[in-house]
Design a protein around this nucleic acid. Structure first.
Ligand SMILES: [Zn+2]
Ligand SMILES: [Zn+2]
Lengths: 474, 474
DNA sequence: CAGGCATGCCTG
DNA sequence: CAGGCATGCCTG
């Protein structure tokens, strides 16, 4: 067993990372520093079994998560910065599926801790995985809870109230031992106001409020009996992610749709007859739990029907803040066996908004790109840019023209991870490289499953995009 | 005493009134007939003293009110019709000042009944003037009330529950014996988002939510001591007018503005220190009551400061339904001494919306006439789009913006190899894969690092990065 | 169902 | 503070 220790505050505040925030970029930041009471000075222990392997990118990715989500972090506030951060996260989460298969993760608990550094492993409630949920089933649905309410749940014991400000569940894609995956069926036709549509390109579900949206689940291997699937919404952006996602008072209070529903405050509903609505004792996070079932004979996927009960734009609720829904495969103890997440936008016109969103993503197209720089207005423009050009070369912005959407999407992801990786302090990088070395040494001796290693190698070099899309495309 | 008996259902369905709905207007009607349980078969008894006079128009107007508002009525659904109805009402209300003075109204009670025929004068609670308010001061502000809720107030006795669906207060302008008037001071300047602006033309106040709006009051003659002014909002349109105007659950529930306000559910607030918030026992109507005061020496008007606590557009609240605020001058018994009403639109940009509203009121001008659609460039554009659309998606061109030269160069290489690889015949790909396999086997024994280097080198063959440099300046 | 408006809110 | 976008919803 190897053990990695690191302090989450370090990640953000020391050396390289602060350097990253310096220079011309820093002004955009206006970062708010939230002193983390719970995380301060507490090291997080990540234990990795000998057969728990991790490539550099993987660790990397999770360090990013820590850096972005920890209470002790400098949370960026400006949108442009944010989106860099969170868009990235989604994408890596989504593409992680195949990557994940390279890893043998045995210890659920330590993994969970790793992915959720906000809850420190104190003596008392040390293994407080955000994924292990209380048995709560009774939701006090009638009590209206003001949004932005920071009040603690009254029945939470003092000791745990220290951590009762909502924690941040991991959204990392993790197929796990049972190969847990989700997907969306091919769309028949997509109109402006289709009830739902999934964008591969954005890895984002656009869905109309309070309509039924089918989501498909599968496991490569059959998990233990009574395994469940949990669906939990969280905010995408670091500034919001700690806030529990709930319906707005309006929708939670109306009769409409709530007539005799057990959980009017829950954003995510599942139409499964056995769906159970839970609210976590400590975090207050709301989720719906449904049984994991085996597909019909001959079928690959099991489809479950979900409903999203507020608009992403709902005032006093999501309030235009993007969310994702995290699906976790859990055993009877609430241990996480697998995890997949999707960004979800709940809106009135999924078709329209998807198109707009996709268009906005492929930024300036060939039209905009001036071959011969035209004079007149453009000259002025470039002059004014000239000032900005003084930035050091790392802040220069370039444009790359790419033919074909597949390549474009792949390069988007690569671009994102490259840019993001520059945020990690050198220290950490070094320490992980060391880890990586150790790991490689093990590999040489143990010679673990050759196929996988080979696969990993190939992958890290630039695998065909097809592979990545595989599970989404059937 | 004369006594007029009539059945509210009759009013709609028989003789003259149905004639009113006939002719070319009728087709637009698509009226929905709501069978009225409470009103059916119950005759309304209006007793008029010998000195209580009424002209035909006056009765007519009130019959229309009954027709439009009673449960037993044909409720018009189309907007144009609606507006005919209610605009009309407003106008008569506004111009009514003089008309009203033609009547000698002695008995407040019977008058009130007349104006509010929805509450029949049963034995039990016969004198239920909508204007005479209960002494209620304690507002159960914490209980959220779902909008469209039809549930009865639990403490209302059964007998009166029959009529507990909110009644319709009169909004007729009535200066009364004391010459009660309201006005708005001249606007200094009017910007798009000025806090408030009053349109004489529309007789409509445009005001920003939760800001202070000064409204001026006067009486021509001094009313008795302890006379008060009541401000009560009601919906303008007949379809909504019976519903009590309240804040939306969102705003009523948030901490914002409600911190220690006695009546978070009330839409209309008054900044007067002695302002009292009331909720009528039977109707559930909410209002704020303030002392009527004499103007400062030499001044004509007394200014009181009001706030409107929801947007007219608030979902789950006003929900884009126009309202008006009725100001009544009342004696200590709650008898109405005078009445004035204003339409109020609570919005984010009073200036903009006023302008738009006034413009919309003007008849259609020549602007609308359609020019011949221009040809030329426009045509070409659409043509050229047509062409591009035919491309298969792999030929689409995208642009990627990248920060930092290193990343840019790296991605250039990746882009190139991706594009290149798609040009290589399958044969060759296969043969290459075979080589790659062999190579990987070797690697398993050696260090992993080397692969990366090698591979990178291979991939980046033959490329001109220079070409690709697009200096894209943010 | 698409076009387009209404309207809060964000941005410069 | 004005211009203009985002986004629910209305209308044909
Ligand atoms: Zn909502
Ligand atoms: Zn409101």
């Amino acid at each position: 067993m190897t053990s990695i220790l690191f302090d989450p505050e370090q990640i953000i505040l020391d050396g390289e990372s602060s350097a990253y925030f310096n220079g011309s970029v820093i002004e955009q930041f206006k970062g708010e520093y939230i002193p983390s009471s719970s995380a301060t000075g507490q090291d997080l222990a990540i234990k990795m079994g000998s057969n728990e392997t991790a490539t550099f990118e993987y660790l990397w990715k999770n360090m990013r998560e820590i850096a972005g989500q920890s209470n002790g972090g400098l949370l960026p506030q400006r949108d442009n910065i944010d989106s860099e951060l969170y868009v990235n996260e989604t994408e890596s989460a989504a593409t992680g599926t195949n990557d994940m298969e390279r890893f043998q993760i045995n210890s659920q608990d330590s993994m969970a801790e790793f992915l959720n550094p906000i809850i420190p492993a104190t003596g008392q409630n040390h293994v407080m995985s955000p994924d292990s949920h209380s048995q709560t089933t009774d939701i006090s649905s009638t009590t209206p809870s003001p949004y932005h309410s920071q009040t603690m749940s009254p029945n939470v014991p003092i000791s745990s109230q220290m951590h009762s400000s909502p924690t941040v569940p991991s959204s990392a894609s993790y197929s796990g031992d049972y190969g847990f995956e989700i997907s969306f069926q091919q769309q028949s036709k997509e109109t402006k106001s289709t009830t739902w549509t999934y964008s591969e390109m954005l890895r984002k579900l656009f869905v109309r409020m309070a309509t039924t949206c089918p989501i498909r689940f599968k496991t490569a291997r059959t998990p233990p009996p009574n395994t469940v699937i949990r669906a939990m919404p969280i905010y995408m952006k670091p500034e919001h992610v700690r806030e529990v996602v709930k319906r707005c008072p309006n929708h939670a209070t109306t009769k409409e749709y709530n007539e005799n529903h057990p959980a009017p405050e829950h954003l995510v509903r599942c139409e499964h007859k056995l769906a159970r609505y839970e609210e976590h004792d400590y975090t207050g996070r709301q989720s719906v739990v449904l049984p994991h079932e085996q597909p019909q004979p001959g079928a690959e996927w099991v489809t479950n029907l979900f409903q999203f009960m507020c608009f992403s734009s709902c005032v006093g609720g999501l309030n235009r803040r993007p969310i994702q829904v995290i699906f976790t495969l859990e055993d009877t103890q609430g241990n996480v066996l697998g995890r997949q997440a999707v960004e979800v936008r709940i809106c009135a016109c999924p078709g329209r908004d998807r198109r707009a969103d996709e268009k906005a993503t492929e930024p300036v197209t060939a039209h905009k790109r001036p071959h011969t720089p035209r004079m007149g207005m453009n000259t002025e423009v470039s002059t004014s840019f000239g000032t900005k050009r003084k930035r050091n070369s790392d802040d220069e912005v370039f444009t790359l023209t790419i033919k074909g959407r597949e390549n474009f999407e792949m390069l988007c992801r690569l671009r994102d991870s490259l840019e993001l990786s520059s945020m990690i302090p050198q220290q950490q990088v070094d320490s992980y490289k060391r880890q990586q070395n150790d790991y490689n040494k093990q590999l040489e001796v143990v010679a673990v499953e050759k196929t996988k290693v080979r696969n990993a190698t190939t992958t890290s070099r630039g695998r065909t995009v097809k592979n990545e899309y595989q599970f989404f495309n059937e």
